[in-house]
Amino acid sequence: MKRIMIEARDIVTAFGESIIHDHINCTVYENEIYALLGGSGSGKSTLLREMILLQRPQSGTLKVLDFDLETITPLEAQSLRRQWGVLFQSGALYSSLSVGENIAMLYHENTDLPPKLIDELIALKIDLVGLPSHARYLYPSELSGGMIKRAALARALALDPKLLFLDEPTSGLDPLSSRQFDALICELRDLLGLTVVMVTHDLDTIHHSIDRFALLGDKKVVAEGTLNEVLQINHPIVNYFFQKGSYGIES
């Protein structure tokens, strides 16, 4: 049995009167690429935000790397945050810092490594995500959309996290870059032993690089499992999402 990295049980989330999550469950195992899928407004981004401590559910238990997020102490939360990397949809690079400084900040705040090694590591991470090496001296405002995504990924990978959260990693990228991005994520998963949780809409990503996923809809998790498992289920939301019977993915 693989180790459970994230476990959500009976999560209820509501904004005022409107309920977003009605007792939902999902489980992420070690070393898998897990996706949260669903239509717009199905609450997948909210669930992701709850996992990374940006938001709290109204009730239910959420465990990330064996920490219960409801009873977590600020110190534990700090050490948990050091074990994950988050890639936001718009990159969220600090605009007053260059790409290199954006990455360096994490090393300066969290480690005591000599500057020479930090320098080497920044060059490595920038290389790893496929940015040209001069990109470290550029500011976020000087980068294209795809480069911002890559720079943000480099920053998310800075501390060699165990867990990587990606919010729509391929949105706004051209198809070729999207596939390269997917391939990179898969390679990193294999070599660094990462566990990846992502929110995505990209059918190619779902088809080629995702191991398991949860499909959210109607305030519930409609289906959870591998693509083949889910396609066996006959449920209106599953049928709609994968466009069964028309075009898109055939079971």
Binding site: A123, L124, D127, L128, S133, H134, R136, Y137, E187, L188, L191, L192
Partner: peptide, 21 residues
């Protein structure tokens, strides 16, 4: 073997020393 693979992933391309602008 896993160390070697990780090395190959990180240093697949030659690194050129870059002077800051």
């Amino acid at each position: 073997q896993d160390q070697d693979q990780l090395y190959k992933l990180l240093y697949s391309k030659p690194h050129e020393a870059l002077q800051p602008p």
